[in-house]
Design a protein around this nucleic acid. Sequence first.
DNA 1: AGCCCCGGTGAAGTC
DNA 2: CACCGGGGCT
Length: 807
Amino acid sequence: MSNDTHYLDELNPVQRQASITTDGPVMIIAGAGSGKTRVLTYRIAHIIDKGNDPFNILALTFTNKAAREMKSRIGKLIGESKAKALWMGTFHSVFSKILRFEAEKLGYPKNFTIYDTDDSKSVIKEVLKNMNLDDKVYKPSLVLNRISSAKNNLISAKQYLNNSTVMTEDRNSQKPMMGLVYEAYAKRCFKAGAMDFDDLLFNTNILMRDFPDVLVKYQDKFRYILVDEYQDTNFSQYVIVKQLAARFENICVVGDDAQSIYAFRGANIQNILNFRKDYPDLKTFKLEENYRSTQTIVKVASAVISKNKDQFEKNIFTNNDIGEKIKVVRANTDNEEGMKVANSIVETKMREQAFNKQFAILYRTNAQSRALEEALRKQNLPYRIYGGISFYQRKEVKDLLSYYRLSINHNDDESLKRIINYPVRGIGGTTMDKLSIAAAEHGISIFTVCENLREFNLGINAGTSNKINDFIVMVKNFGLQVPLIDAFELGNNIAVNTGILKDLYSDKTPEGLSRYENIQELLNGLKDFVEQKRSPQEEELKASMLDGLDIEPTDLFAPEEVSPTLRTLDEFMQEITLMTDVDKEEEKENEKDFDKISLMTIHAAKGLEFPYVYIVGLEENLFPSQMSVNSRADLEEERRLFYVAITRAEKRATLTYATTRYRFGNLLFCEPSRFLEELDADYVEYPEIPGSNTSFTDSMFGRMNNEYKDAHPKEIEFKSKFSPKPVAGKKPLVKINLSKPTGPSFVADSDMLKNIKEGSVVEHEKFGRGQVEIIEGEYPNLKATVAFGVGGKKQLLLKFAKLKIVG
DNA sequence: AGCCCCGGTGAAGTC
DNA sequence: CACCGGGGCT
């Protein structure tokens, strides 16, 4: 049924070639607004039309939203059921699914938790406390960045400690213990049965490295691989793609080097620039016709990006009208900037009969939104902010989600800490400290400590012990229900039975009301979720999760009653954990009042387009950001960001700057951005400076060029910051050398346990060597008093403490 | 155990 | 200016 001529006719010649060259390595360089999504869509449709099973196609996108949109467009071309069978999603979501199938091979439970950034930071804080390190020096966010960077470059904790380059860097930055923090962090996550975002990719690599049969399975499965936004992939993602494509080499990457704006998070622009080296018989297609913007916008944007050194040669053009000049607007303060933008929008709406939703205001940092919001409110202009604090980050939502997480994975310490005393049940800080310490000493989760409380002798009184026990029983009970009842029913039960709903309901303040509404919204989300059907992938995953699951018959359920069509809470959690704000926002777009002005960061605007775009805060040290002005690479990224911003505009782009701005509560004088200077003056309309005949350009750039040249040394090459770069080998299958993950090697051995006697010399993971002084109790609940060289005497339960006999 | 107030410190972007 | 953490008070 290859009636494909129909849709292929809608493509221009290059787009068409890029769509039908389905076999072998292909790179598509897609300029802004050049119909990239259309090509990807038609290409996938075409592959399927040629008789390939959608199940054998892997398409990796940058956001889940992009995946959903593409799926629905493909569905319209070739039928929804086929489109649904595609493996399509972000790297994180696709590989977290695959990891659930295979997790046990790596020593993780199938229902592993995914730690978000807050969880990670909290783990780091705890590690620092344990190691007696100052969190002013080892700032958790910095530490996390460093660990993330290492993981994205496939450097395990062990390799990190053996890597003289990174260790020297750490010593030089007065953080010599960084590697050990990484190690302890990794160990804790592992014990909690948790992976952070970077682990999802890192562990996928480990899986493919250590289990060749698994690699072959997926190589076989994914006969066609497509990667969108390839310029924003990092090394870890690069290796995954390279490995998976090694068998068929039907690999198509799509991207635009000019729009690479995620280097800060490990994206490596070299992945796209060097793609040709990996695949010598690569076919390259350049989509150079812009269908989105006016000639003016296209020309100005091209001139901007031409200032960058590293890029593919391309000639972006458009057959659209010349359009209006780019407007530059000057304001005296950030508030005035907001007012001018708001006034301009009002005026444009009247003059051109425009709708709110045709306008976007883009800024470099979220903090800039406030002045703009105020101005819009004054003009009664409805707006919507994208990004900012996400729904799932809200305290009350996180609290309830923590119950869900802990019910699914009892070892999830971060969730446990969050909710063990919420709503208040009399388990306070002192008790928690005792539990945490015991857990850390024995290398087990806090939940496990609580389950075996009597055996630890922590000096917790009977009353508190009972409260802990009640909590444990409750969570276990929730856990048992996870596979048995649907996500909404269980989610709702948890909200009710824990008292959260009541607690929030009783708070009648406006904030309290809003919190209550948020919980209701979460529950509505659950309701929607249970009514949706699974995709074929999810179906397969569900079967795998049920397989081997031991369901105890209860008064209420017999195992055979477990309905495989039931959509359960663990599935819901998997779906939402990797959802981004952008994904969540989408749902609301169907609501009645969606005619709103969009406010967002430029990063968030990637992939979007609007007739009228305002880019605000074009000032030195803001855009380009202060952090970037010292290195050429960073500055080039800022310039690409500026390029992305301009190319969002279809009809008109307006650039604004303020000469003063509040920052940290005090007034700051600002210089106009160097990016304004780089604009091609023929296409730009500058403001007149009132009360003088001097044009904007003369006054401003005259000053800049003379007085400020030395004060703002531009584009000086500095030594790049941290970036351990493992060289991409020609044969990554053998060349990539990762150390083994911390595997299940800590599991206590029962024979070993019995052999420990009074007088034995033993080794503890944390305390090192020590001698056993006393053994008490009955197997398997033996308790030993051990005198360690470091840390003195400790009482340890042999069943938990992993002691190695050394003499 | 919880609440409140104070002071110090800090904003780039995100899966 | 806004947030967070610590300390002190109830």
